[in-house]
Write a protein that binds this DNA or RNA. Structure first.
Lengths: 198, 198
DNA sequence: TTGCAATTTTGCAGTCATTGCAGTTAGAGT
DNA sequence: ACTCTAACTGCAATGACTGCAAAATTGCAA
């Protein structure tokens, strides 16, 4: 029942992390496509077949902690007072997630580099983000007590995720003069205030 | 040199369409994953190998006209006066594309149904949309004469594509009381006016 | 310590998309 | 009819992913 103990659980988590590390290393050295499951397995001292009990897809190795990321956002969102405007709550939640990104900037940069160079990983990443959007939409529908015919929750969710993605991309691409949380915060402000004027 | 004549061209286009139709039919009858390239080829009277000279991926059959879609948007965008605010220009361009969607609603509904049921197709779709975002970002950077450090073009592009996707999804999901172009137009208005107030 | 039941790991065989290569065919212009 | 080029095809290979059943490992309790 507990969610964080048990020797078995720990071992599994460790092994997962180890496979991840080994794989990323190989991806960087040889390129994602040029690296086979067999090689990863060999380097991690497991049978090729076993790889798939840790990751559904080769792509998923690069995106290992996407799930946690969404968890963090939702957690923050639930924490915000019910009477706070939705957009403001989203802003706070995503900004919190953004600070996580900064904390492990190095770890992430490597993964993003691989993603940028590998279409299939990029696609998978977007797919996971679409999942976020879906979950967020449901959350917001509840929060706003919206009816099925109201496009508001979906619009807000889509906008929020888009802001996050764009900010992250900008942060990784452009000379990062500005820190990510600031970037995210400002972008939320701009959508909050309206894109029309300029 | 000409872009729309030549028997060769025509034949190629026809064949492509034919493969597409046959494939969609099979996908609907048997499911996407359960349909093999071999079956499609057989049904379309071509060699399996030939399939790949018409489509890069099995997924792409479902998304055959995504490229045209982007073309339409960019064309509209180029048509808008340079001094028009970017967001307004985007609104007009995407609304135009939305009316295309309506015109071939049936054709598209079938494809979206397949997409919704098939993760890999969904992923591919998102990937293509990311491509749109990228192209749009470049266009907007030019239009706004933005410097590399300015996140504005990326933000606008991301927001626009997000609006489109969310509207489309809403249109397909919810009881479509409202027409797509209206939905898109309103959503652009809302982002234009600002999401903050409510 | 030992025994057991659950869990994990593994090997094997098979499916299928996708690709490179090389040979063949068919269209278009002369 | 003749040739040049683009399209079509067959073949073989690669590699991700899956189902299955045997084998190994583990946590726990007697």
């Amino acid at each position: 029942m507990p969610e964080t103990n048990g020797l078995r659980e720990r071992k599994k988590r460790d092994r997962r992390r180890q496979i991840e590390d080994v794989a990323i290393e190989l991806f960087e050295r040889q390129g994602f496509d040029a690296t086979t499951i067999e090689q990863i397995a060999a380097a991690a001292d497991i049978a090729p077949r076993t790889f798939f009990s840790y990751f559904d897809t080769k792509d998923d190795v690069v995106l290992a902690d996407y799930a946690d990321r969404l968890g963090r956002i939702l957690h923050e969102l639930d924490q915000r007072p019910t009477d706070e405007p939705a957009w403001s709550a989203l802003q706070a939640s995503f900004a919190a997630a953004a600070s996580d990104y900064v904390a492990e900037a190095d770890r992430l940069s490597r993964r993003f580099a691989i993603m940028a160079a590998t279409p299939s990983v990029q696609a998978r990443s977007l797919q996971l983000q679409a999942g976020w959007e879906h979950t967020l939409t449901a959350h917001l529908a509840t929060r706003l007590a919206a009816t099925g015919g109201d496009p508001t929750p979906r619009l807000l969710a889509a906008a929020a995720v888009a802001v996050m993605r764009a900010s992250l991309q900008h942060w990784l691409t452009a000379p990062r003069a500005v820190e990510l949380p600031t970037l995210v915060h400002d972008a939320f402000d701009r959508l909050g205030a309206g894109l029309a004027p300029r």
